[in-house]
Every structure is written in structure tokens, then in C-alpha cells.
């Protein structure tokens, strides 16, 4: 099973985490990493396990590199039935009111087009002590295990 990793980033932190995830998985799995800014809605494939890392920026907005992708989904209205995705958010609890809204908005959009969200949507807190990869890897390995079964 190919694991297709996508990232939506504003300052590069989500890109770094996407690359770290790919590095962790590459011994066991086929992986690809792509910027959402360079991805068409069709890049989310039914055969793949799609993993999305997406930050949040400013007032709970989508990060810059996710915006063109989201605009395409909104205008093209693709049918994503059968597409499975797991999404991991990056947020900053200093901005509590809109914490993790970027990843939430993207997840809701994909589900509204028929895609299936796997697992919970964790949000890593940039203002906390834990490293994002330490939070993302156990979450993702569990999802991969369930998807393989």
C-alpha cells in the first residue's frame, strides 16, 4: 500500500514533519511526499493511504500552501468517495479560539466530498514541549496497522 503524504504549510514546519514521517516509514512502505500547493484533487487516490499534515495560520486560516488545493476542491467539486485520509494538524494554543482550525477546515471539506477520515485528527501544539513527530508517529502507525488489516 502506497502512503501518499501531503503537506499544507505556511512557515515550513508542516513540510518538515511530512518529510520526517516519510523518512520514518520508508523502510516499510512506499511513500511519496507532495506539497498541497502542487497537488490536484485527483492526487488523493482511492488505492493509497493518504496522510495530510496541515498547519493553521493567523486567525485559524488555512496555511498558504493548502489554499490553492482547497480552492480547486471547492470549484471542481470532485467526488472523493472511497478516498481514505488521515490528517494531522499543527496549531498554537496561544491562539486558543482557533486552535487547529486549518486542518479542521481541510478535513471537513474532504469529508463533504465523500472522503473517509481515518482515526482522530490530532493537533500538535507549537507552544508545548512535545515534538510533533513523537506525537504523529504512534498515531499514524496505528492507522496504518488498521488500514493494512
Amino acid at each position: 500500500m502506497n502512503i501518499a503524504i501531503f503537506f499544507g504549510t505556511e512557515t515550513g514546519n508542516a513540510e518538515m514533519l511530512a518529510e520526517d514521517i516519510a523518512t520514518e516509514l520508508e523502510d516499510q512502505h512506499e511513500t511519496t511526499v507532495a506539497n498541497l500547493a502542487d497537488s490536484a484533487p485527483e492526487a488523493l487516490q482511492v488505492a493509497d493511504l493518504n496522510v495530510i499534515v496541515c498547519s493553521s495560520y493567523d486567525d485559524g486560516d488555512l496555511p498558504a500552501s493548502a489554499k490553492p488545493f482547497v480552492e480547486r476542491v471547492q470549484s471542481e467539486m470532485p467526488d472523493l468517495t472511497g478516498v481514505r485520509f488521515a490528517i494531522f494538524g499543527l496549531g498554537d494554543s496561544e491562539y486558543a479560539e482557533t486552535y487547529g482550525f486549518g486542518s479542521m477546515k481541510l478535513a471537513e471539506l474532504l469529508v463533504s466530498r465523500g472522503a473517509q477520515a481515518l482515526g482522530e485528527r490530532p493537533v500538535h501544539d507549537a507552544a508545548g514541549d512535545e515534538l510533533p513527530e513523537d506525537m504523529a508517529m504512534p498515531w499514524l502507525l496505528e492507522i496504518i496497522e488498521a488500514a493494512d488489516a
Binding site: 512557515t11 514546519n13 494554543s93 496561544e94 507549537a126
Partner: peptide, 15 residues
């Protein structure tokens, strides 16, 4: 000093 999340980019820079 109280925007530690914003300073998180330093992890990228270290690499």
C-alpha cells in the same frame, strides 16, 4: 517571549 509557538521555526533552521 510569550510567542514560543512562533519560535518553533528554529527547529527547521537548526537542521
Amino acid at each position: 517571549a510569550d510567542h514560543q509557538g512562533t519560535k518553533g521555526v528554529a527547529r527547521q533552521f537548526a537542521r
